[in-house]
């Protein structure tokens, strides 16, 4: 009873502190006379405004109400400009139109640049995650190999990658390797992130494998399993379970690190944020929104991994 009351008290204090922090942000913005205009961010997430469909050239309008079609016969062009999707017409049949005139409006929800950026961030993260996992597994296995060549190559890779900043690696990947091998920005970004994360994954996998008692390998080998079979069926499944928590941390880092690829002009969430700030005149709101979107991604990932951990704990 006593303990329960105390828990309540601490929870109340926690909520209080969160409120105080939120208020201090508000108060700070009041001090610099900042006007919060959250509504300005909305169109950059989902644009609900009606779009105008404008004429690509001078010409005459033909409207066919029954088949819901507007045709603009453009002077001096053989193929007419056809509009099939519109909500409201702004012209009538037979009207003479000049270039740039509004023909019709279309009310359709369109995803804004922030969501476009979010999608790019997800794409980069997913590709990099998969490649980093494969790369990390290979390097991790090389790292514990009995063969000195494989082992030294793995150590070299891990040390070089972990000893240099990701930002510098991205520049090298894009401006040097990317130029030599003619890589696109996106590819260069994904490779840089994969190679970077792969080094950390390799170390996580190595320590995961080494945490499995040697008796497991001996039992597997004594049953006639080859080294690869013993790894595949016995060691790696157990190591995988143990590496999930550090792996989750590494992949959350990957999502956050992906913001650095914006320096090579990949329009990810961060780059989209920068572009939107200059157009919206609502920098605080935009950056808070960007932060929130990253938080949604990282929380989703850590939730998914926690569920996986629960499912794998059946044998504990």
């Amino acid at each position: 009873m006593h303990a329960k009351q105390k828990t309540w008290l601490w929870n109340a204090v926690f909520v209080g502190i969160v409120f105080a922090l939120s208020y201090s942000v508000y108060f700070a913005s009041q001090k610099i006379e900042y006007n919060w205009r959250w509504e300005r961010v909305v169109p950059y997430i989902i644009n609900t405004d009606a779009q105008e469909i404008t004429a690509p050239g001078d010409g005459t309008v033909e409207i066919d109400e029954r088949s819901h079609q507007l045709t603009l016969v453009v002077d001096g062009e053989t193929t007419p400009f056809v509009v099939k999707e519109y909500t409201e017409l702004q012209v009538s049949d037979g009207d003479l139109i000049f270039e740039g005139d509004t023909l019709a409006t279309l009310e359709q929800w369109q995803i804004g640049p922030l969501i476009d950026g979010l999608i790019v961030t997800i794409e980069i993260s997913v590709y990099s995650l998969i490649i980093a996992l494969v790369l990390g597994l290979v390097i991790g296995l090389m790292r514990i190999s009995a063969n000195p060549l494989l082992r030294n190559m793995a150590i070299l890779y891990i040390e070089v990658i972990r000893g240099t900043p990701l930002l510098v690696q991205i520049f090298i990947m894009y401006f040097f390797i990317g130029t030599v091998m003619d890589l696109e920005r996106f590819t260069a970004g994904v490779i840089a992130l994969s190679v970077f994360t792969g080094a950390y994954v390799a170390e996580i996998i190595r320590s995961g494998i080494q945490s499995i008692p040697v008796g497991q390998m001996e039992a597997a080998r004594s049953l006639g399993m080859s080294y690869p079979k013993a790894m595949t069926f016995i060691i790696l499944p157990q190591a995988f379970k143990r590496t999930l928590p550090p792996m989750a941390g590494q992949f959350i880092n990957l999502i956050k690190d992906s913001s650095l690829v914006s320096v090579i002009s990949i329009t990810d969430l961060t780059k989209a944020g920068r572009e939107v700030v200059s157009g919206s005149f609502a920098p605080f709101e935009v950056w808070f929104t960007v932060a929130l979107l990253y938080l949604v991604l990282t929380s989703a990932l850590s939730w998914a991994i926690q569920r996986l951990e629960k499912r794998l704990s059946a044998s504990d």
């Binding site: 497991q216 039992a219 049953l223 006639g224 080859s226 499944p237 044998s315």
Partner: peptide, 21 residues
């Protein structure tokens, strides 16, 4: 590996695979 298939071994510490029934 072929030879080991013909020689079973039982360990002091059992060494069962914990992730399998």
């Amino acid at each position: 590996n072929k030879l080991r298939e013909n020689v079973g071994m039982v360990f002091q510490g059992f060494n069962l695979f914990p992730h399998k029934t």
